[in-house]
Write a protein that binds this DNA or RNA. Sequence first.
DNA 1: CTCTCAGGTGAGTGTTTACTCACCTGACCG
DNA 2: CGGTCAGGTGAGTAAACACTCACCTGAGAG
Lengths: 215, 215
Amino acid sequence: MKPTTATSRNPARDRQASLINSAASLFAAKGFKGTTTKAIARAAGVSEALVFKYFPTKRALYTAILAEKAPLSELLNAVEAVARKRDDQLVFTLIAGYRIRPGADPTMLRLLLFSALEGHELADMFFGKQHRVFYDYLAGYIRTRIEEGAFRKIDPLLAARAFIGMVVHHRLLHEIFDVPLHCPHQDIVTTYVELFLNGLRHPSTSKNRGLSHVR
Amino acid sequence: MKPTTATSRNPARDRQASLINSAASLFAAKGFKGTTTKAIARAAGVSEALVFKYFPTKRALYTAILAEKAPLSELLNAVEAVARKRDDQLVFTLIAGYRIRPGADPTMLRLLLFSALEGHELADMFFGKQHRVFYDYLAGYIRTRIEEGAFRKIDPLLAARAFIGMVVHHRLLHEIFDVPLHCPHQDIVTTYVELFLNGLRHPSTSKNRGLSHVR
DNA sequence: CTCTCAGGTGAGTGTTTACTCACCTGACCG
DNA sequence: CGGTCAGGTGAGTAAACACTCACCTGAGAG
């Protein structure tokens, strides 16, 4: 038996990975139906027939992308570290700053949206790995902080969705709808985090319901 | 000249409208490339050839939908009325409640997302009519309330986007990603509005930075 | 040198697609 | 009664599509 399955050099796996990368950016740009197998082959620099040597169907290739591309990453670890110190400001700044950052790649967001809109069978799984973990983790953290008296009473899951909503919607506007940014990234992150944290804190005991100027 | 252009009965315009309706739900469900002209014809109950009698190309039909479907509607009027009374709670409850409501039709949201993702030329215009007006109006209202001293100092446009972001993201989760609701609509609206308004109000003068339980 | 075989391709296949065209039909008018 | 014409269609057409297949190539083993 030859060492064809060696971990260091595996040309078959390299090809497969290169096909996945080429296909991912095309699927992200034009959707599943909008991407042709010929275009994928051209982008990877191989013949169309070879694509079908590595993936039985176009759909299987798409599925392989969704199954593989789910980084979720080191961010959660970094967040957990500061969460233990109860540094609310930093917890939410980390999360927002990770998603709103200058060089953020829109590929994943587009892939996620396309897969959900086009109703791919793996869209749920993709969403789960990329986002649900954050909702659950954040909701848990918020619940803890409520019990500790740092935040006022509020549905933790809704609060988590609200925060992720602000951030993801911002990316949506910027990366999908091409809405220009009118101030630097750091200011945006700070504004969102302070707005959210201030909203979670106990309201001032003096009831200034803001009817100051009503005529 | 016959009264073919009468406003009461115009079969040509009726056909056109029926085609637009049938096509809109198909485009919303499966995207532009995922929808065939044959399917549109079948949904409208006519032959495929007739589609091309009323619209020169499939793209022209898509364009007609985006150009026509932009209701934006009476909501803005209702909001303006309560905005004059400076009823912040009601202003934001109206907006959130309009979008998060039991029978909300996901068609428009899907159409909007598909058109932006697929990069249609009219996507910007569609977005402008459906959403930008709300950002601008809300930002203006928030700016006014800041000047009146009711809200703390904050970038009005970012604040408006944050609020719309919470609400739209909620719809996204519910209507596109099929995330189930775990509490009634009214509670969700109330939670979001209170979170946002509390975040906009001046922080309590007593600086409780919430480090109560740190070890 | 020959045999083998993974890695790769050009030239198809049948089907689906957007779009066209010659033709039909029936209400209305003189 | 015949003529007209908007409204409507069945039967195409050329191109694009996902997918197949017979064949090529070159390195390594014997």
